[in-house]
């Protein structure tokens, strides 16, 4: 049982990490709590679903459509809900309100367009193959999601470290003011950030839709809280931290169920989270530099 639970933990961890990747990016660069990320994630899943069911696209093309659609949605979200606040030098907390407003709108729009019911990708989207290796069983979907998550994580890390935009993003994350003094077009970088972050959300929407067959306008809410925990546990805007924290949270949950009790699954996970924060007040990989309000 241990090995299967380990696989379960790795699998769930990749799901959390995938969701948290884009989330932590916006958080790190803009320093805002974007509670509409779950809604963009949900729309990504629907874009992918529509591409497969209405346009008869293969799943890889649907994935690209979802990423593109969600990315554009992210830019729109920024224009409507966050940019006006930046222009007005609004306090950071104000962004919570506009992101909640945006999330409400996006979820209601989805309910208007698709209804409240749960849908899923067609059964033949991916073969329902199960691999057995000793005591362990994994499905093809799980293998694919895990692999693609790793690839996306690596790609994002490379992008942040190597590309011009990625470097500029990190500069803006450090300080928007200094970046603009250095000649970085901060506004363009923010738009790029929103696009990349939302495209990642869209991708994770499609993968979660494939993995869990529970696509609905409300699918963003349960994972939003977990994602929030992951990105903060990992350290603000710290991409490797978010990945690590995703696996840590998943392992806590899975082994909490396996060896303690499923009744206390979330309580165990959050108690561990609080304890870790007490030891590392800026997250696992967070820097100890204090951000000024």
């Amino acid at each position: 049982m241990f090995w299967q639970q380990l696989v379960n933990a790795l699998w769930l961890g990749s799901v959390y990490a995938l969701f948290a990747l884009g989330y932590t990016l916006v958080f790190g660069v803009l320093d805002i709590l974007n509670l509409a990320h779950g809604a963009v994630f949900m729309w990504g899943a629907f874009f992918g679903l529509l591409a497969v069911t209405k346009l008869n696209m293969p799943i890889w093309a649907a994935l690209l459509v979802a990423m593109l659609g969600a990315g554009i949605l992210g830019i729109v979200l920024d224009r409507v809900a966050f940019r006006p606040l930046r222009k007005r030098n609004a306090p950071q907390l104000a962004a919570i309100i506009s992101s909640i407003g945006a999330s409400t709108i996006l979820v209601s729009l989805a309910q208007g367009a698709f209804g409240a019911q749960v849908s899923r990708f067609p059964f033949d989207t991916l073969p329902a193959q199960v691999f057995t290796a000793g005591p362990v069983r994994v499905t093809l979907v799980q293998v694919i999601v895990f692999a693609v998550s790793l690839v996306l994580m690596a790609a994002l890390l490379l992008f942040m470290r190597r590309s011009r935009s990625g470097k500029a993003m990190r500069a803006v994350a450090y300080s928007g003011r200094i970046s603009s003094l250095l000649g970085i077009d901060v506004d363009r970088i923010i738009v790029t950030t929103f696009f990349v972050s939302s495209a990642l959300a869209g991708a994770s929407g499609v993968f979660l839709g494939l993995a869990f067959s529970a696509i609905s306008p409300f699918m963003g809410a349960p994972i939003e809280l977990k994602g929030l925990a992951v990105i903060i546990l990992g350290g603000l805007g710290n991409v490797p931290g978010a990945i690590l924290a995703g696996f840590l949270l998943a392992a806590t949950e899975v082994f909490g169920v396996a060896y303690v009790s499923s009744d206390f699954r979330d309580a165990i996970a959050f108690t561990v989270l609080i304890l870790v924060l007490l030891i590392r007040p800026s997250g696992i990989l967070g820097t100890a530099v204090e951000r000024r309000a």
Binding site: S98, G101, S108
Partner: peptide, 11 residues
């Protein structure tokens, strides 16, 4: 939806 719009505009 209107509720959300009002929130955004207000803030």
């Amino acid at each position: 939806i209107v509720n959300g719009v009002v929130l955004i505009l207000a803030i």
